[in-house]
Design a protein around this nucleic acid. Structure first.
Length: 263
DNA sequence: CATGCGTCCTGCAAGC
DNA sequence: TGCTTGCAGGACGCAT
């Protein structure tokens, strides 16, 4: 599923291609992808210049001149592609620009959204790669499970199930540990793990478990770096203990019961 | 206000 | 082999 590094990869590739171009229209195949009717969307965006393309958490933000933003969330299986090469039945929309440029929006599970609104109206927390993430964690006095905190986009923006499991494993923290039971040192190590994992994955153009592709249809190379996510039932590569799976905040969470002690 | 669960959706894999 | 069932999950809406 696209999380911060995957969205960053898409934005890095797409940004130089759309910046400065002018929005022409969106041709919607799967209606519920938009937050407003198609004709309203086109009326509001047609002729607007793309000032900038940015990532905010897991959102892709088209900053329009004299208008609100076009905000895309890929959710589970949303894909932006320059080529019309994927399965026709998964094509959700085509976004056209005045300068004879277009991209295709594919989505297998139809969870993804393309919205016309102001990104500032969304409640989005601290960027997972921002320098003050550590102080946010240190100052947040909560007895909620650390994994639930990491997944909460209104607190920390950009982490999903994969990078949460990996970071907690690397920091040797059990996903159910309440945040306020973690020492300062443990949070420093966790913060460091998050940062290193995200930067490494960005370098490798994201993580492809099954569906993720960049705008050229290429897979990300981070999946081979995974140590714990989706590896329940297998042996921990550090201690050879059997990796277990539990539900935390509604998501499956893989962890090593020996390396990650619960407090 | 905070918390927690149901909902959206399809593909894949396991089980019988 | 072919069917059914369940699981995967991000953000949001709604109920408590």
């Amino acid at each position: 599923m696209p999380e911060l590094p995957e969205v960053e990869t898409i934005v890095n590739q797409l940004s130089p291609l759309v910046k400065g171009k002018t929005f022409e229209n969106i041709n919607v195949i799967h209606k519920s992808i938009l937050n407003i009717p198609e004709e309203d969307f086109n009326e509001k965006c047609q002729g607007k210049k793309i000032l900038d393309l940015k990532r905010r958490g897991k959102f892709i933000v088209f900053n329009l001149k004299n208008a609100l933003d076009i905000v895309i969330h890929l959710r589970m299986t949303g894909m932006i592609s320059l080529k019309k090469s994927l399965k026709e039945k998964h094509l959700s929309a085509i976004i056209n620009f005045k300068e004879n440029f277009k991209f295709y929006f594919y989505d297998i599970r139809k969870f993804a959204k393309i919205e016309y609104l102001s990104i500032n109206d969304k409640s989005i927390g601290r960027e997972a790669l921002s320098e003050d993430l550590l102080s946010t964690l240190l100052n947040l006095d909560s007895n909620k499970a650390i994994k639930a905190i990491l997944l909460d986009q209104t607190i920390i923006a950009g982490l999903g199930n994969i990078y949460c499991d990996e970071a907690l494993f690397q920091a040797k923290i059990h996903p159910l540990t309440p945040l306020n039971k973690l020492s300062k040192n443990e949070l420093i190590i966790l913060h460091d793990s998050i940062k290193k994992l995200l930067l490494k994955s960005i370098k490798l153009k994201g993580c492809t478990i099954s569906d993720f592709r960049d705008i050229y249809g290429e897979k990300g190379n981070f999946a081979k770096e995974l140590k714990i996510y989706g590896k329940n039932g297998k042996e921990c590569f550090i201690c050879s203990n059997k990796i277990e799976k539990i539900k935390v905040a509604g998501r499956s969470s893989s962890f090593c019961p020996k390396c990650q002690n619960q407090k």
